[in-house]
């Protein structure tokens, strides 16, 4: 069975209860967090819209991080992207390649949301979901979550004409289904994240296990590096773009970590 989160951004009010519940339930040390709220603002005073990006793992079905992980520390299970930190070698490929820029290095190892895997395994619900005072979060069977997201979007159309579901198809289908009041770009979420190229799958699933010759490895490795390079390039472009925008209309976009 595939699990998924529902995250309804029309409800999230930015209180960060999820952030602390995650930290305390998973007993994360200082400087590690799996959820981060990032404030976004569009427009100029007083014609403004805004909200929070609830930045956390999207649990992609075609997870690039899993594809590039050389040790199997990252793996797919029950629709979730799981992480066994004990098996992580600290290579950082996942950090470099994630289209959503989610994993970060902490204590020399990858670190990201595991959907409270140990807790969910016991039949519970992720800590962030159970505590959310806005009830913006839900967790369950992905098909049911997706159906509910679609129903919610219909109900939101009066207030938010651009309301939409995000995550049905992106990256092969996400395990984090978003209900968005507006286009994903308004929360700095890519409308269509770059897919994992076939060459990476080859590198991971064929080349690595067979320990083929250095030439082949290098060629496949180049594919991985290619993704990383492209992602870095896209980030640069976006930065340039942001600066341009800032130059033309000051305050058009305002991003703030809270």
């Amino acid at each position: 069975m595939a699990y998924a989160f529902l995250l309804d951004m029309s409800r999230c009010i930015g209180c960060e209860a999820c952030v602390v519940a995650c930290k305390s339930g998973n007993q994360l040390p200082v400087d590690r967090q799996y959820i981060k709220l990032i404030e976004h603002t569009s427009g100029t005073f007083p014609d403004l819209t805004g909200g929070f990006q609830n930045h956390r793992c999207y649990h992609c079905a075609d997870a690039t991080c899993v594809a590039v992980c050389p040790t199997g520390a990252l793996f797919k299970e029950d629709g979730l992207t799981r992480l066994n930190r004990d098996a992580c070698s600290g290579c950082g490929y996942c950090v470099q390649s994630c289209p959503y820029e989610v994993p970060v290095m902490s204590d020399g190892r990858s670190s990201k949301c595991d959907a409270c895997a140990s807790n969910v395994g016991a039949g519970g619900s992720p800590w962030c979901v159970t505590t959310c005072p806005a009830q913006a979060l839900k967790y369950g069977d992905r098909d049911e979550i997706l159906a509910e997201a679609k129903e919610r979007v219909v109900a939101l159309k009066d207030r938010y004409p651009k309301a939409q579901v995000y995550g049905e198809t992106q990256a092969g289908g996400l395990g984090l289904i978003l209900v968005l009041p507006d286009d994903p770009e308004t929360l700095d979420i890519p409308a269509d994240p770059p897919a994992t190229p076939v060459v990476v799958d080859a590198w991971k699933e064929v080349v690595q296990p067979l320990s083929m010759g250095a030439t082949v490895l290098a060629a496949a490795g180049a594919g991985v590096l290619g993704i990383i390079a492209r992602r870095n390039h896209m980030a640069e472009l976006r930065e340039v773009d942001d600066k341009k925008k800032a130059g033309v209309t000051a305050g058009d976009s305002d991003t703030e970590e809270v």
């Binding site: 209180c15 209860a17 602390v20 519940a21 305390s24 959310c132 005072p133």
Partner: peptide, 21 residues
């Protein structure tokens, strides 16, 4: 761990970030 008491009319099983801390 601290959670909202599900029977409590004020928390209804939920809790804010400060309470979680």
């Amino acid at each position: 761990k601290i959670d909202g008491n599900s029977l409590d009319p004020k928390s209804r099983g939920m809790l804010c970030g400060r309470g979680q801390a």
